[in-house]
Write a protein that binds this DNA or RNA. Structure first.
Lengths: 223, 223
DNA sequence: ATTTTTTTTTAGATCAGTCTAAATCTTATT
DNA sequence: AATAAGATTTAGACTGATCTAAAAAAAAAT
């Protein structure tokens, strides 16, 4: 486990996030578009990451993470999300201002610093976006929460939290029958605007905009 | 005031620190030895910094900071020292563990982040080493404190604080006649081990080890 | 005032990271 | 199955940052 450059860390993180969406391979172009670079640059980097045994890479056939790459990605994500908590909880940033800052802070790689920060923040389990924070061993301590807008059609989950507690928002949820603990199935996602058709508790169908679904946290495969 | 690379920031900071020692020009070799690189690398970088009008640079004749370079250096130092305070005050690091971490954190350059951090820390005026923290405008809010071990022979100052408040340390200071407010002149510094011969209040001569003098803060040119 | 020593700069390489443009491989279409 | 379309990789170039070795300039010593 040698030290990685910030660029290498960013690629790993991107691959992890793309794999999170479901597929077991991600393509060069997908990575390029996510990290806003060009396919040629990605190709280059993939060779380096493969050499370090952080990814499985077969030319022209996409990549996936090795055990080591997966663990490393989770450590990077851990740092990122702990800093996000710090920025929001301690420095009073809004949760929409923290992404670029956390992206920079996450590359300061000192296990001791991360441990102390974690402790200082009270060992938070979720970041301000509702995403889970991996523990010191790269383990997600609980079933991952996911934002409803990122749940794919056909998947079923349970609503566990909202990211926006304004009166207007909560009143709206109440009106359409969405509440914490409700079972929710995504029936359809409109690609054009990201809006979704939902089935609440197996009975009521509702249509919600992406602005709404992006503020609702879901736990997949509820018991 | 465009964004600088971490390397550029490190060079600026190094030049600033060397100029702080008194001279109005610093040499390529001095910089190289401070930042642990080679003269050739420094030469290269100096060209770039001169191009950006951060330093005055005349080949073979050393460098000094321009107004803009000076201000920039102070901003970098501000970030560095605020993070040092954070690491010690909030994350409970010892003041000897923070240097490399602060070196990395200082390169995250976001004015808003720095302002919020400053506020969160209660607008500290000195870092854990006793060095002053420049304000938002790059101004040192008070006469700079300096650690006694860094005072050169011949200079005179006033003792203003100690960094170590252990009973054993304070008892020792008392015994040799060192106290807060005492006038101190550095008569001699032994290069071998950094120990110093001091003249306290123009009367008493004492010999102190570097471990001792590194824990004593002095204000130069007392009134 | 030469010569020697030291310091500094240049020249030329290397590495990481990126790009554009061209070549190559895969996949979809006919 | 041949070809066109699309994705991916290579080739070659550039920037930033570094290095070693050689050349050049300044300072010190004779």
């Amino acid at each position: 486990m040698k030290k990685l450059t910030p660029a290498e860390e960013n690629y790993l993180k991107a691959i992890y996030h793309l794999l999170e969406e479901g597929p077991e391979k991600v393509s060069t172009n997908e990575i390029a578009s996510l990290i806003q670079s060009k396919a040629a640059s990605v190709s280059d980097m993939l060779k380096r990451l493969a050499e370090k045994e952080l990814i499985y890479y077969k030319k022209y056939h996409g990549v996936s993470l090795t055990e080591s790459g997966h663990k490393t990605a989770l450590h990077i994500i851990r740092r990122n999300r702990l800093w996000e908590v710090f920025l929001v909880e301690k420095l009073k940033f809004n949760w929409d201002e923290i992404d670029t800052l956390a992206e920079e802070l996450e590359h300061v790689n000192s296990p001791l610093l991360v441990r102390r920060l974690d402790e200082y923040l009270g060992f938070p389990k979720f970041d301000p976006h509702g995403d889970p924070i991996p523990d010191e061993f790269g383990e997600l301590s609980s079933k991952p929460r996911i934002v409803l807008s990122e749940v794919r059609s056909g998947q079923v989950g349970k609503i566990v939290a909202v990211n926006n507690s304004s009166a207007a928002f909560l009143k709206y949820l109440d009106k359409v029958g969405i509440y914490i603990g409700a079972k929710v199935e995504v029936l359809d996602t409109i690609e054009f605007d990201g809006s979704q058709e939902l089935l609440i508790d197996g009975q009521k169908k509702v249509f919600v905009s992406k602005e709404v679904s992006a503020n609702i946290q879901v736990m997949l495969h509820p018991g």
